[in-house]
């Protein structure tokens, strides 16, 4: 039963009582499962169900297991699931460094905290960006900061809601492989919503189609 990875068992979402989606899936650690489908098919809703952000008129039933833990009763902040949206959504009132430190475990203090932030920035080629205002970064840079912010919080799974769609083709491939590489290195199960078949191909995993 304590199978690692993200398991959706007969997950159903209804909107005002009407069934909206229903699926089962198993995302193993290090694996990327893609979710595709037309606009309005409920892809973001599916991610919301996994995150635990849906509220009425939505209702969720079925089981969501992460590394064997049942998530149903847990609030968003206790689920240990990272998410990247289409917009990087860096907190505009915090510096790049403080954004990264936001989700760092509290046990990390003082110099160790600063070092963790610096290392994360260096890992994605953004040395010395810690004191920058996030509004002054380019789209690709913001996305890299958002990725590292998510990873520094040590999540057990990663959800992606079309995170690359705001980037041009070149940058897109580059960032995409960075994200996949990092997620694989951390052994995270990844559930990715996308419109772009190239994304799903690059992910190399199972493709779930919603309609």
């Amino acid at each position: 039963m304590d199978e690692p990875g993200l398991i959706l068992q007969d997950l159903r979402v209804t909107l005002s009582g009407k069934p909206m989606l229903r699926l089962s899936a198993h995302v193993a650690p290090g694996q990327v499962v893609s979710v595709m489908g037309p606009s309005g098919a409920g892809k973001s809703t599916l991610l919301g169900a996994v995150m635990g952000t849906l509220s009425p008129p939505f209702a969720v039933s079925g089981r969501i297991l992460l590394d064997g833990r049942d998530l149903a009763a847990l609030p968003v902040e206790a689920r240990q699931i990272g998410i990247l949206f289409q917009d990087p959504l860096l907190f505009p009132h915090l510096s790049v460094g403080s954004n990264l430190a936001f989700g760092l475990p509290r046990a990390l203090r003082g110099a160790a905290r600063r070092a963790a932030v610096e290392k994360a920035l260096a890992d994605v080629g953004l040395n010395g960006f810690a004191s920058r205002d996030p509004a002054t970064l380019s789209g690709g840079q913001k996305l890299r900061v958002a990725l590292m912010r998510t990873l520094l919080a040590a999540p057990c799974a990663l959800l992606l809601d079309e995170p690359f769609s705001s980037l041009d083709a070149d940058r897109r491939a580059q960032i995409r492989s960075l994200v996949f590489e990092r997620a694989r290195a951390a052994g995270l199960p990844v559930l990715m919503v996308t419109h772009d078949p190239a994304d799903a191909q690059a992910a190399g995993g199972l493709v779930i189609k919603l309609d």
């Binding site: 995150m51 952000t53 609030p75 968003v76 902040e77 689920r79 240990q80 699931i81 990272g82 998410i83 949206f85 917009d87 959504l89 907190f91 936001f102 989700g103 475990p105 912010r149 998510t150 919080a153 999540p155």
Partner: peptide, 16 residues
Amino acid sequence: WDARQATIAHSLGAGP
């Protein structure tokens, strides 16, 4: 206010 900011912060472990 964009509620996705709250989702992000929650996903980073911050309580309400």
